[in-house]
Design a protein around this nucleic acid. Structure first.
Lengths: 250, 250
DNA sequence: CGCAAATTTGAACGTAGTCAACAAGTGTGG
DNA sequence: CCACACTTGTTGACTACGTTCAAATTTGCG
């Protein structure tokens, strides 16, 4: 995908360094979390809801999702995960995982022990603050989706998903423009937006008929981002941060 | 409400000490976050969406909620906040608040500066881990609601709200039984569950007709908690924790 | 007591779900 | 290379859950 990728030894450090400049020591400490690697095929499950989970992960390559199953068999996708994301933090505090982690494409993940987190914080308190900041950005993304599911139309939710996926794809791959492969089935889009696959199909068609998007060969083109964002109540949560209060490294 | 309340000098420390035993030093450090107090009347706004927010808060007394407004004017309540909760963490990382914090009853809150968090983590790394654990319990509660809004019926959402409110009330006040005042209008229940006030009313009536709850004088009685939990896919997220990996204090 | 807010109920409507059938891809093994 | 199975996408007809609108009633409170 578009030339050489600079392969850092810590994907998570790359994400955090978008927030503040990291010191060499901090980088090296983060690299320890990604010493081990595990390859996964599309469809493979890394962690299953209600099963013991002793590890956390950094996603190094690929695309994953976390979801829960309700007892009528329906599925709610909670979050899509991109390279550099830390996975399984919320499950790590329970005896049994709160959500399932599943690969949507061939992936590379780096597993690490829960205690590695406390160790990290003990030696690098500023990283503790940054990890908290990272999890809170996720929290705001989750509450945005909560509001979307609770209070917006089917069309708005689908539009919001398209915008969000595109901007998160671009965060890891600058070459992504307004045309991209979404890499999800309509069923998966439905499970993320709280809709049926049938209705997702209708909403995509409607967005297409209104000239907001185009579709061809599994690729989506965002034709009118302004109108999409308006239809979707979309806010990019990676902008507008204020981290000036985080102390300089010692 | 039911006798003398043990007034600790840090409500948040009380919450964390449900997770692990705190040292005297840790407690004293947490007390610093609650040195200042501010009283608020029911309906008062502590922080408004899209306005600058320089502070975080610990809720010491009362009941609050956080919500967002969509541009069609509808409201989504994100979370109810009880004594001992830390508020405004996610907004503190932005220049402008991501959500509004509003008092549902007369409240006492303790404001503190964002930098107090980094300072706390620098001196007490174990508290950094505990704060992370605290925010992740909240995360799981949010994803439970995300799944409820996306995939469950109106009746299930209302039932889940009743169960959740009761168990969280009881967490701060052990005298709460299966009968309690919910302290919310049906409109507020609707804004939390993604329903209209009218439909909330019908769902409450239906739960009543089915013998799952009783209502009288603004108080709700949970008559059949088992059946309610079944109807609601309810999981108590304050159980099942595993924090044995957190190191002992030095 | 009198007013405003909250609750309750009914009727009509509309968004999204369900069910079903078919088309278009996608991958596999013969 | 094709036949086959299987997943995914597409479309239509019908259903139903929850909304909207409106009006009456109850509750809380100054």
């Amino acid at each position: 995908m578009g030339g050489l990728e600079s392969v850092s030894s810590s994907c998570f450090a790359d994400v955090l360094s978008e927030l503040v400049d990291l010191t060499g020591n901090e980088r090296r400490a983060l690299e320890k979390l990604e010493e081990r690697q595990r390859h996964m095929r599309r469809g493979a499950v890394l962690q299953r809801e209600n099963e013991p989970c002793n590890e956390l992960f950094v996603l190094r390559k690929g695309l994953m999702m976390s979801y829960v199953l309700l007892d009528d068999g329906s599925r709610q996708i909670l979050r899509f995960h991109f390279p550099g994301d830390m996975l399984g933090v919320s499950s790590a505090i329970y005896r049994e995982a709160a959500e399932t982690l599943c690969a949507l494409a061939d992936c590379v993940v780096c597993p690490f022990d829960r205690s590695a987190l406390s160790d990290l914080f003990a030696e690098h308190p500023r990283l503790a603050t940054l990890v908290l900041v990272y999890t809170q950005i996720e929290r705001v993304a989750l509450t945005d989706r909560l509001a979307a599911l609770g209070r917006t139309s089917a069309k708005a939710r689908v539009a919001a998903l398209l915008l969000d996926l595109r901007s998160r794809l671009r965060a890891t791959d600058k070459s992504v423009t307004n045309i991209f492969a979404l890499g999800l089935t309509q069923e998966e889009v439905g499970d993320a937006t709280g809709l049926t696959a049938v209705h997702v199909n209708r909403m995509l068609r409607q967005l297409e008929e209104e000239g907001l998007i185009a579709r061809e060969g599994g690729k989506v083109t965002l034709l009118d981002e302004r109108a999409l964002a308006r239809a979707a109540n979309y806010v990019n949560r990676y902008e507008g941060l204020d981290l000036a209060w985080i102390p300089k490294p010692n």
